[in-house]
Write a protein that binds this DNA or RNA. Structure first.
Length: 535
RNA sequence: GGGCCUGUAGCUUAGCCAGGUAGAGCGACGGACUUUUAAUCCGUUGGCCGGGGGUUCAAAUCCCCUCAGGCCCGCCA
């Protein structure tokens, strides 16, 4: 059984209606790790719905959380916003300088591109802005209960997390006169107000049913479980450690009279060769950049095929090509009408069923049938990577695909989108060098050893005919093949020689297509070089 | 110190939570095809399932111990 379906099966024991939640603090750019969190939720939701459970995905934006520090991508101007809620501070421009007159908040600034990405990935969700929930009093009940049970709450936190709390600790963080959570000393609790004094000695009070303060993280979380009715929540493995926030949360939520959601801890995902993803650390690669180069279904496949507790090393180089191959192969070979026979072992049956789920979970459209895939008309990722390099103009790409029978008429939006992403990939540093097509202008030493005096006639007759023929792929190919035959050469060997001469390696994409794309003089010149090298 | 996760073929891994003969992809190797060229097709190779012990008719799967790697216990998913 697929991991998402297994989770759904576990949830079915709990009830028939479910709320799967994801909570993310928009403190910086969203990244592939956040994608994993949301897609993990999304797949569980799909698994639940498939199992007949009424299920929804809730995306909680922790917009009430304060800015912790001036991150590396922010200018020192942000110093004054530290401690203030993320929904109340201005977004940074490309230099990290606050845009004071912006209509968007810091939180929205970072969230919006992420939401766009989720849409492309086919994720359906309901948004919950945490600051609005505070404003609307959703946290009032939980705040009151925690405040009234201050000792009990403190005891749980201390015992479970192993960290002693300050003597004057209160289960609430008020916002001071300056709009910041920092440097406030709580003086008392008089329902519905928490009274306090700021560092200047000025007193104040916060209504717990308004956005005049918030619960500390470890209390905020169970409070959300309680009033939203969260039944399942995936979270990073850091929260899963003993003494971590889930351990305290599951006890604290009982004080509120609720049950903790079914936990789904997940491992980190990182781009191969780069450190772990973090929205607050110094990252050198635009975190959502991965989305600009990978087709949505391949990204979904990456998450679908790896169980949450599996660490993912996302290879955006050659590994991407392999993963795309695997995905396409799975689509092309998995046949819903040919389940394993009765006499097959359980493993074989399970594998077949897990493959079914992987394909299904990878689709951006949750309702799309998984057997409507027409492999004959599908342009493979690998093929596209080649054509896109040879043809710089999109129209020429379509022509090329049409002539090879992979496209009829105009390309659909999906294919156009795939080409765009492919071009982004090719133009990025992620694209693997071994697949980069580069025309050799000089004869490499290795290329030189691939042919000898016996090939001179072939090369010179080829040079001669290519210098006058029509410069079209099919024609060029004719000359290459016909002349090789006339000279009694093995066709394969002729190609190896020519690849070495033109690309500096023994093989590559359809040679004639490549040659047709570059100037005739370049080709002739390369052949001349080769012939001269024999002298 | 406490805890979580991972360890299966050269590589990436499925199967583990309902014990029942170790599955796949890539790679490698061999073959087929020959206006064919990072292609396609067919085949072969390759695993004492990290190690040890236990439970069982039967263990990759359950239990205990152990080794190795990653991570958490300061609000970084």
């Amino acid at each position: 059984m697929h991991w998402a379906e297994r989770t759904a099966a576990n949830l079915a024991h709990r009830g028939s209606s479910h709320l799967v939640a994801a909570g993310i603090t928009p403190s910086g750019e969203f990244h592939i790790g956040h994608i994993r969190e949301i897609l993990t939720c999304d797949m569980i939701v799909r698994g639940c719905r498939q199992a007949g459970l009424d299920t929804e995905l809730l995306f909680i934006v922790d917009s009430m959380d304060p800015l912790r520090k001036v991150y590396s991508f922010l200018s020192p101007d942000y110093e004054k916003y530290i401690g203030r809620p993320l929904y109340q501070i201005p977004p940074p421009d490309e230099n990290g300088i606050p845009i004071l007159n912006s209509k968007k908040s810091y939180a929205e600034h970072f969230l919006n591109p992420f939401l766009d990405a989720l849409k492309e990935l086919g994720v359906e969700l309901r948004l919950s802005w945490n600051h609005k929930e505070y404003k609307e009093g959703k946290f009032e009940n939980a705040s009151r209960i925690f405040l009234n049970n201050r000792e009990e709450v403190a005891r749980i936190l201390t015992e479970v997390s192993g960290r002693p709390l300050e003597e004057d600790w209160w289960p609430y963080s008020p916002i001071g006169h300056d709009g910041s959570f920092d440097d406030i000393t709580i003086t008392g609790w008089e329902d519905p107000y928490v009274t306090w004094i700021d560092s200047n000695g000025k007193e104040g009070k916060s209504h717990i049913g308004k956005d005049e303060g918030k619960l500390p993280w470890r209390l905020d979380w169970p409070a959300k479980w309680d009033f939203h009715g969260v039944t399942c929540e995936p979270f990073g493995k850091d929260h899963a450690a003993s003494g971590g926030s889930y351990a305290t949360g599951r006890l604290l939520v009982e004080i509120l009279g609720s049950k903790a959601p079914h936990p789904v801890p997940y491992e980190w995902i990182q781009l191969k060769g780069m450190g772990p993803m973090s929205s607050s650390a110094n990252i050198t690669v635009g975190p959502l950049e991965a989305l600009e180069i990978v087709p949505p279904e391949i990204l979904r496949y990456l998450i679908a095929r790896n169980k949450p507790n599996r660490h993912i090393e996302f290879d955006t180089g050659g590994g991407l090509l392999e993963m795309a191959d695997q995905y396409e192969r799975l689509l092309a070979t998995w046949n819903p009408d040919e389940p394993p026979g009765e006499d097959s072992t359980d493993r074989v049956k399970t594998a077949w069923d897990v493959d079914r789920a992987k394909i299904s979970m990878s689709q951006t459209n949750p309702n799309s049938s998984i057997n409507n895939f027409d492999s004959d008309a599908y342009v493979s990722f690998r093929h596209l990577s080649m054509v896109a390099q040879i043809r710089s103009d999109d129209q020429d790409v379509w022509k090329s695909l049409e002539s090879s029978g992979l496209l009829e008429g105009q390309p659909n939006p999906t294919l156009i989108d795939r080409l765009n992403r492919m071009r982004n990939w090719i133009n990025s540093e992620h694209f693997p060098d071994e697949y980069r097509i580069e025309i050799s202008t000089e004869l490499t030493a290795e290329a030189k050893t691939s042919f000898n005096e016996g090939d001179r006639k072939y090369l010179s007759t080829l040079q001669e005919s290519l210098s006058s023929c029509e410069w079209k792929s099919a024609i060029i190919n004719d000359h290459i093949c016909n002349l090789a035959r006339e000279n009694g050469m093995d066709l394969r060997n002729a190609f190896i020689i020519l690849y070495n001469i033109h690309l500096g390696r023994p093989h590559g994409p359809r040679l004639a297509s490549v040659l047709a794309e570059i100037p005739r003089e370049t080709v002739i010149h390369a052949l001349e070089n080769a012939i001269n090298s024999l002298d």
